[in-house]
Design a protein around this nucleic acid. Structure first.
Lengths: 331, 331
DNA sequence: AACCATGCTGGAATCGTTTCCATGAACAAC
DNA sequence: GTTGTTCATGGAAACGATTCCAGCATGGTT
């Protein structure tokens, strides 16, 4: 069968070997930094350059029983927080020359499981995930030898993770709100943020404010769901005076819902949002936020998963309360 | 302490064959829908399920000389437009079960070339790209048999593409601005938007407004660069009365720069922004925008690159002018 | 009974790379 | 001159799948 395809056959290591007058083993050694005589090395390099040879990752990976590259699972790439996290991962991966395969889970455990399956099929051995389901779901992946690092959330103690110190950020924000006289403070969270919710109620109690379970609401990782949750909260509980939004999409939803229902920020309602985004400053009023180092979280997670030498437990990155104009004393 | 279990070798097709008492060829046939007797099929399926067998994509790809999956190259994943585009690609790819490998070019042709190299190394045969450099750069990739689809921009006539009809959107926006009495209208664009710039000057001329080259400014794909360009424009040309921002990041930069320089929108300056984003409505004032179907662009591009049967030339998707409150008659 | 058509099956080749191992040469030490 | 030792080197065996091809049984037709 001669080359009937317009796209000609890929140049292989064999072609290089032939062209350089050496064996394939020698070519492989030269190209991967093994030992070889200066003269041979030069001949091989010249031949490789002449033929524009690029080693096939397929062959290499099959032989070495591992696919290079990193799998990255986030709930929603449209969310600025996860986009920045992704950017951090990419920027670290680039310096290692590792490709990144992206999957969105939509905070749906079923989809997450499906994506994990795909990753295993691809023989990916490194994964960074913002987990949606419970930790159990990751057992098969770990058994398969997958190298997992969690980002933003942790659902298993035996898997390293990189998270922002939202507990501290939350405490600062709540102290601020309580100091302004607020007592009925709602938490508008996303599914999978159980830890954040727990921290919320604990901190509130420790500040002398009784917890009210009706003031904690959850949404899925989509704009519509966030809006529905925010609007529902504001309609059902007109008595609340402050809202803590657990993400930028939820904050956005809260602002929108408040406008729709003619609730004035900050006169009628104070709002603090997790995650600083560029538009928070552009918003009317500019939003007080708990800034999170999303990009760093991604970068550090990538570092962790790439330098798999030692296994640190968990990296916690600081958060910062940025006060703007969306909070006022309780009337 | 490594968590590598001894003897945890991956289960291969050979194991399944042995366990089912058939040859490997038969297993392969059964699993890929070939012909086999009902009894054999059942035995193989049972064995595969029992051993939790997953075919290795590596072996398959090596044999078939192609890596499944799609490579996606965008200038900046942090930009809402490209994030939505990416979301569209992922959502289409998911229904085909194809993994997506993401790379950010930062609108840098050099980085783009580097990423193309990586994709070829991975034997990726399908790529969706928002091209940054000129069309020449894609010649080697096309020669290597890569299946390329451009999104958002087109730089080669022989490569199919999916774009938004920004020419029409631009015309509508400019008619609106000119109708409000504006004459000195600036374009704040990004590198690689030469076509958009050309459309801008042409349209302006056709509306009877002389083009002023000094009113066209370019930025790279980063927030800092966008801000620098916007601030520079406003400082150097205090005579302009309207700005058309070529992307949401540029619009954001324009709003920020205007505030910083105490230029009031829309009293002193009218602003129209390409691409509708959720915060455009939250902004003060709410921004008039040319809405672009970013997600659809991604989805359609993925469809095009996956259904490589026929090769349509170009898909153009409609845009829409959404009038809010950032434009006013010229004083 | 002889023949062919049909359909299922498994051995073996193949994809492109890395890596093990044997070979042979050069050289030093005795 | 013989024996080790150290290199560079290339042949061949993996890796895990698909697929060609030949073998074999079955059943129908002459």
């Amino acid at each position: 069968m001669n080359n009937l395809m317009p796209g000609q056959r890929r140049t292989t290591i064999k072609d290089v070997a032939e062209s350089a007058g050496v064996g394939v083993a020698t070519v492989s050694r030269v190209l991967s930094g093994g030992s070889a005589s200066a003269e041979t090395r030069e001949r091989v390099l010249a031949a490789a350059a002449r033929l524009d040879y690029r080693p096939s990752a397929l062959g290499r990976n099959l032989r070495q029983q591992r696919t290079g590259g990193i799998g990255l699972l986030v709930p929603d790439i449209t969310d600025s927080f996860y986009a920045r996290l992704t950017d951090g991962v990419l920027s670290c991966a680039r310096s290692y020359g590792e490709p990144v395969t992206l999957g969105v889970t939509g905070d749906d455990p079923e989809r997450e499981a499906e994506l994990i399956g795909t990753l295993i099929e691809q023989s990916m051995d490194r994964v960074i995930a913002v987990p949606s389901g419970d930790g159990e779901m990751w057992a098969p992946a770990l058994r398969a030898g997958l190298n997992v690092v969690f980002a933003d959330r942790r659902v298993r103690a035996d898997v390293p993770g990189v998270v922002a110190d939202d507990r501290a950020g939350l405490r600062t924000a709540l102290e601020y709100l309580v100091g302004l006289g607020h007592r009925r403070i709602a938490f508008l969270g996303r599914h999978g943020q159980s830890q954040r919710v727990a921290a919320f109620t604990e901190t509130l109690t420790s500040l002398g404010v009784p917890a009210d379970p009706g003031l904690v609401v959850h949404a899925r990782a989509s704009r519509d769901s966030a809006y529905a949750a925010a609007a529902g909260l504001l309609q059902h509980r007109p008595d609340l005076t402050a809202v803590l939004a657990g993400g930028n999409m939820l904050g956005e939803a809260a602002v929108l819902a408040a406008r729709e229902l003619d609730v004035r920020i900050p006169r009628d309602l104070s709002l603090v949002m997790f995650d600083d985004v560029p538009w928070a400053e552009l918003c009317s009023p500019p939003l007080t936020v708990i800034a999170q180092p999303a990009q760093d979280v991604g970068y550090r997670a990538a570092e962790l998963v790439l330098r798999q030498g030692r296994r640190p437990r968990t990296v916690t990155l600081p958060t910062e309360l940025v006060v703007r104009a969306s909070c006022a004393p309780r009337r």
